[in-house]
């Protein structure tokens, strides 16, 4: 039994290796891309449209609405980043019902990578929106004394993002694994259902927190 899918090594050449995390991630990426491509291949611009297109439209508009509610002024600009974050994490977590599947989000490497992406993207979007000076000025708001705390907050929240998702997903997988050895039949199923819920909640929390950070960074204090 392994703690993370990183430990499943398929191929290795020195530093470079193809582990379970990467393989499952690629599989998810492939599934998402192909699925989306299949659905959006024949889009309808009329009032009548296919069910799958309807589903995707609901998803996209819901995500856009959610980002807007958080306080981001132009949700479409960040829809690609935040929406993909949510869809990837949610799908990765939902797929735990498939036997033999190890969620990539149960790997601290993946969650750290996603947290790092947020850690990098937030300042980038902030600078793009407010300019370098404007963004850096937000670190000394409301007073200069707050500068160290703001910097610490920047790092700690990234760490928290990574650890929260990893901890939840890893623990879920671990609990199911342990329970399977103790009570093999009914209880793991209940825990799997709980794991699905936890996975969705975690995907929501991760992307909403990223959106909040983005909203804070891109706030331009315009009247």
């Amino acid at each position: 039994m392994h703690l993370s899918s990183d430990q499943i090594i398929f191929w290795q050449l020195g530093f470079i290796k193809v582990n379970g995390t990467l393989v499952f991630t690629w599989a998810l990426m492939l599934a998402m891309t192909v699925g989306v491509k299949l659905i959006t291949r024949r889009l309808s611009y009329d009032l009548q449209r296919a069910r799958w297109q309807n589903l995707l439209e609901i998803l996209v508009t819901a995500i856009e609405q959610q980002i807007k509610e958080v306080g981001v002024a132009e949700p479409r600009k960040y829809l690609g980043f935040l929406g993909t974050l949510f869809l990837f994490i949610a799908l990765a977590n939902l797929c735990t019902v498939i036997p033999g599947y190890e969620p990539p989000t149960g790997s601290l490497s993946t969650t750290a990578a996603l947290a790092l992406c947020v850690f990098v993207a937030v300042p980038l979007f902030g600078i793009q929106e407010q300019g370098l000076g404007g963004y850096l000025k937000s670190y000394i708001e409301p007073t200069l004394i707050m500068l160290p705390f703001n910097i610490i907050s920047e790092f700690s929240r990234t760490l928290a993002l990574a650890i929260r998702l990893f901890g939840n997903m890893m623990s879920g997988t671990m609990i199911i694994g342990i329970l399977l050895t103790i009570t093999p039949f009914i209880f793991p199923i209940a825990m799997t259902l709980l794991g699905l819920l936890t996975g969705m909640v975690q995907a929501y929390i991760f992307s909403i927190l990223a959106a909040v950070y983005l909203a804070a960074a891109t706030q331009t204090n315009k009247p």
Binding site: T25, M32, T33, G80, F88, S107, L114, C117
Partner: peptide, 16 residues
């Protein structure tokens, strides 16, 4: 893996 996953994520963002 962290680097590869970050890259994977960015690719996925572009694909999406």
């Amino acid at each position: 893996t962290v680097g590869a996953q970050a890259l994977n994520f960015l690719i996925l963002v572009w694909l999406m």
